[in-house]
Amino acid sequence: MNKTTQDVDRYISFEGIKCNQNADRLMGMLEDNLTQQIGDTKWQTYFADKLAHQQRCGHDNLHFIGNQMNILFDYFTQCDDQPALALLYQIEQECC
C-alpha cells in the first residue's frame, strides 16, 4: 500500500514520515540564512554555540530541532522564510 500525506499518522506509525530527511533540509535552510547573515546578528552567535554543542554531544538534527523549536520559529519569522516556517511546522506535527 502506498502511503499519502493524508494517510500518515505518527501515532500509528512513523512509516512514510521523513523526519530525518526533513530535519536535514531544515538545517540546510538554517545554514543558508545564517551564511547570508539574514536576521539580527545575535542569531549568528546563538546558533554557532548551539550547533557546536550539538556536535559535542553527537545529537542528530531532529534532536536539535526539537530542542530549538521556539527559537527556530522566532528566527525564521524574523527572516520571513516562509518555506522554512512551513517545514518547521510540518516537522513539529509529524515528528516531535
Results as ranks from 00 to 15, higher is better:
81 D>V: 00
19 C>S: 07
52 A>P: 03
17 I>S: 03
4 T>G: 10
45 T>M: 12
96 C>K: 08
54 Q>G: 01
17 I>F: 10
12 I>V: 14
93 Q>H: 13
76 F>V: 00
55 Q>I: 08
55 Q>G: 06
28 G>M: 01
82 Q>Y: 09
30 L>M: 05
39 G>Y: 04
12 I>K: 12
63 H>D: 15
57 C>W: 14
57 C>R: 15
21 Q>W: 09
71 I>W: 02
20 N>C: 12
33 N>F: 00
12 I>G: 14
1 M>I: 09
47 F>I: 03
21 Q>P: 02
63 H>R: 13
63 H>K: 13
75 Y>D: 06
27 M>K: 02
11 Y>R: 11
43 W>S: 01
12 I>M: 11
18 K>H: 12
13 S>I: 06
81 D>Y: 08
64 F>Y: 14
90 Q>L: 09
60 D>Q: 10
73 F>K: 11
4 T>I: 04
94 E>P: 00
47 F>R: 04
43 W>H: 05
29 M>K: 10
31 E>A: 14
71 I>H: 09
6 Q>K: 12
71 I>E: 09
20 N>Q: 15
1 M>A: 13
61 N>V: 02
70 N>E: 13
94 E>F: 06
23 A>I: 03
61 N>K: 12
8 V>N: 07
74 D>H: 09
38 I>E: 05
47 F>A: 01
10 R>L: 08
39 G>E: 07
16 G>I: 09
25 R>N: 06
80 D>R: 13
50 K>F: 09
10 R>T: 04
61 N>S: 11
72 L>V: 02
45 T>N: 08
89 Y>P: 00
84 A>E: 00
